[in-house]
Write a protein that binds this DNA or RNA. Sequence first.
RNA 1: CGGGGUGUAGCGCAGCCAGGUUAGCGCGCGUCGUUCGGGACGACGAGGUCGGGAGUUCGAAUCUCCCCACCCCGACCA
Length: 491
Amino acid sequence: MAKDFQTREENYAQWYNDLVIKADLAENSAVRGCMVIKPYGYAIWEKMQSVLDKMFKDTGHVNAYFPLFIPKSFFSKEAAHVEGFAKECAVVTHYRLKNSPDGKGVVVDEDAKLEEELIIRPTSETIIWDTYKNWIQSYRDLPLLINQWANVVRWEMRTRLFLRTTEFLWQEGHTAHSTKEEAIEETEKILNIYTKFAEEWMAVPVLQGIKSPNERFAGAVETYCIEALMQDGKALQCGTSHFLGQNFAKAFDVKFLSKENKLEYVWATSWGVSTRLMGALIMAHSDDHGLVLPPKLAPIQVVIIPIYRKEEQLKQVSEVAQKIKKSLEEKGISVKYDDRDTYKPGWKFSEYEFKGVPVRLAIGPRDLENNTVEVARRDTLEKEILQIADIENKIEHLLEQIQKKLYHRALSFRENNTYAVDTWDEFKDVIENKGGFVLAHWDGTAETEEKIKDETKATIRTIPLDSKKEEGKCIFTGNPSKQRVVFAKAY
RNA sequence: CGGGGUGUAGCGCAGCCAGGUUAGCGCGCGUCGUUCGGGACGACGAGGUCGGGAGUUCGAAUCUCCCCACCCCGACCA
């Protein structure tokens, strides 16, 4: 194996790219920075979507859809927001093409210039708050709990499949509340949903915390985040939930009459996770043999491969395989029976291995004689022969085990790669030579964070919510600090 | 936008410096046969505006000039 894979050790970045391509998740498109998400990759995203969508709906949110285009003037209404996004906006300036005068193709028709340019949304706060203005008059209209599934465009200079693409898919929630407390509660509620999803479905342990001012969302009062550690020791931001205060309400003049008959600005939140989660999923669990998927998000949880020589044998094997498939499906397990005769068993073993299918069953003539089946699990690459009787319960249990195993493996990796350091030399050494999360004291100033970044490339990934208060001295300036924050190099 | 590099079959590459018949190799693809419990093997076969344009030359993938595209490194970022 691994004959056409770079290993993680050899070249982590290359390993990741090879994996995405070889596992048939996505590929680069003809458009620079934009990817084609292939059916197998999209199936994983669809699973993520359906789980998250249910979680949002269970907590009272509803879906809606807002336009792809945003008038340029909307953008300039919230100062910090424009500032943050201006440098990466795609702009529509014309609405028509015409035949080129030289007869070669088409050119932009200069006569079809838009009065006001349209921005392709990098995020939808502005168009949404401009709309909410008309929807909200009274405290009776609140809270407004809306989510949208959409594509957005951010003109990044360097892109990587799933981790950073010019266009990406995501969900963005935008809520409006009558009190500050309720909005903060919403922000935290969503953070907990994201955490639960990451840990219980993706099997990726995450740190919950808030962002330093430098890393805060443009236009937010506070940005909460979940942060995961990848196998190369770099951090990946997996989701953000923003408390927007009254910034957008003021910018778009969204007021409501309270019970006390007073006119007040609305309190807001916004929150999102994107196809970047695919990157986290891939990098958290996969190995040098290919993708490893947690059963709860695997499009195919169990694959059955027949071993046979003659047609007659295939017929007998198929009968047993179909029976097993059916009994597994009755348990809600997704099963693929791959009886294509255009590929050999060995080839199929490899294919499903690098596609990360959690469990593989092989059934051949020997099994027919003994009423057995060969069971191979992807996470540990272990194989065993099991009796067919009661196979559906055994497999169901095995899938649960794999899900847990992946989470705990990722968790212990994170624990083994988290370091508390108290001196600047130690800090530089760990960041440079080991990677991982580094817990260190920081004096709380943006200047210090900036200087640390310039010298080491490490940034504050998060200020953990659950960390103990602890007096200490900033590793860089020696100024007093009240708690440790999490530093790392990040994606 | 700076610095480096690459464009030759679906993919990965050789050929270019020292110009010369029908432009090669590996993988993949097609047909047939033998195979089938960890990426099978053999035989035959299909597949090319050599990134584009102009020039030098009897002759250009190869030399010259211009253009284009893409990749890597840096500044920006979910």
